[in-house]
Design a protein around this nucleic acid. Structure first.
Lengths: 231, 231
DNA sequence: CGCGGCTTTGATGTTCATCAAGTAAAGTGG
DNA sequence: CCACTTTACTTGATGAACATCAAAGCCGCG
């Protein structure tokens, strides 16, 4: 349960070029001196909302959820994030504590940099800062867009939407193991667990899906897409 | 109806220090050479979703709504924005077309800069880029947070939430003229116009509000806050 | 084994959308 | 300026969508 902490060799890190395309090799090695890889197994909390932001973190491998606890104690899921998307970037430049929790929903690996270091580089290297901004902008735009999209749909459309999201965006395949529970789907789309289950059962009876526990296979993709679009 | 376009003198612009605190006077005058003030009267569209982003724009005075048209032709309102918040910043660094429309809901004044110019400065002036990022981050965080908050509430809680938003955040007063129609409230909270009206009438009958058309007075603030929190 | 969490289904009631119909207000053209 | 059209606002009646409550099976884990 306790995550492994191991230094990673930056030469092997495939994220390097993507992430730091505008940072010189010299600066890069400065950063990497204090770069730490951390593994989290499925279900473990990576960052807890409310905690002070001390580090700059990105997702190297795995899948995570971003969530927030409402005042009634119920969790709400904001979005999911896969490698190359940012994990701790939200709030990093606007707050000194995390606004959201991040939890591994598949075994995940994060790379952790010193926050002050990254900020210092961003302040002296504008192209890097622009890079960060661009990625940040894309990620938040997606969250906002996704929330709007879900908002205008009914229960069936929302479930279809989520299934298509995992199928297309995350797994690139019509058969996959759902990384989250029924309750988490409910927390994401803002409906009750029971109705999520009922709708999945309906889709199974209508031969749109095959379901064995968490294993989902989309049988009738066109119909699912139609439901997602038009209820 | 056609907006006035007038050059503004930057010496008089109170936004200057706020916005450009990390830009030298020399660079500033470069920017201001091509700075244009544009007035929009209430109801007019400032930017239309889908249009190419050619300029960098911020709100100097007034109040605007950010909205998006869904595939069924219905508008959804993302958020409202007041001066010092960004207007065209969303998408500016992640897309080449506007993802959202911006419409004046009160007479508004925008300041328009050349986008390439601003980008050039951001690429060479990291502190400025960090400034942009920080403001951008705050603005998007607020939108995401607000949407989550509304999502978990029922009709009455959502209406209460919106009224408190305008009262506290926008007007700083318990009496104000609602800048938007009942339909727009519906488009913001994701419910029907009829139910928005019904709920406002309920609040009036329950002596929580006084309503004369668009003029709203919050009579029982504590009860409204309670409804906003706990339904 | 027994406990707690996840899943499933059914029954019931609440919340909300839809439809309908009418009034008021605001813009439009002669 | 007045008839005309359109848009915003309002209320009621009805039914659909969804939450809640209840009960039971399943599975992993200490």
């Amino acid at each position: 349960m306790i995550p492994d902490n191991t230094k990673c060799s930056c030469e092997q890190c495939e994220l390097k070029t993507l992430f730091f395309s505008h940072v010189t090799l010299d600066t890069l090695s400065d950063i990497c001196e204090i770069k730490i890889e951390k593994n989290f197994s499925k279900g473990n909390i990576i960052v807890q909302e409310g905690e002070p932001i001390r580090e700059f973190m990105y997702l190297k491998d795995g899948l995570v959820k971003l969530s927030k606890m409402a005042s009634d104690g119920k969790d709400q899921i904001l979005s999911f994030s896969k490698p190359f998307d940012f994990v701790s970037l939200f709030s990093v430049f606007s707050s000194d504590t995390y606004n959201y929790s991040v939890t591994a929903i598949e075994d995940s690996t994060t790379c952790i940099l010193d926050l002050d270091n990254v900020k210092r580089i961003a302040q002296s290297n504008a192209m890097f800062a622009m890079d960060l901004m661009s990625r940040f902008s894309t990620a938040t735009d997606f969250i906002i867009q996704e929330n709007l999209d879900i908002k205008r749909k009914h229960l069936r459309g929302r479930i279809a939407h989520v299934l298509l999201y995992f199928s297309k965006r995350i797994y690139g395949c019509t058969s996959f193991e759902l990384p989250i529970s029924r309750r988490e789907i409910a927390e994401y789309i803002g409906m009750t667990t029971e109705n999520v289950i009922r709708t999945l059962s309906e889709f199974r009876k209508d031969k749109i899906l095959k379901i064995y526990g968490k294993d989902i296979a989309i049988v009738d993709l066109k119909r699912l897409q139609n439901i997602s679009e038009h209820g």
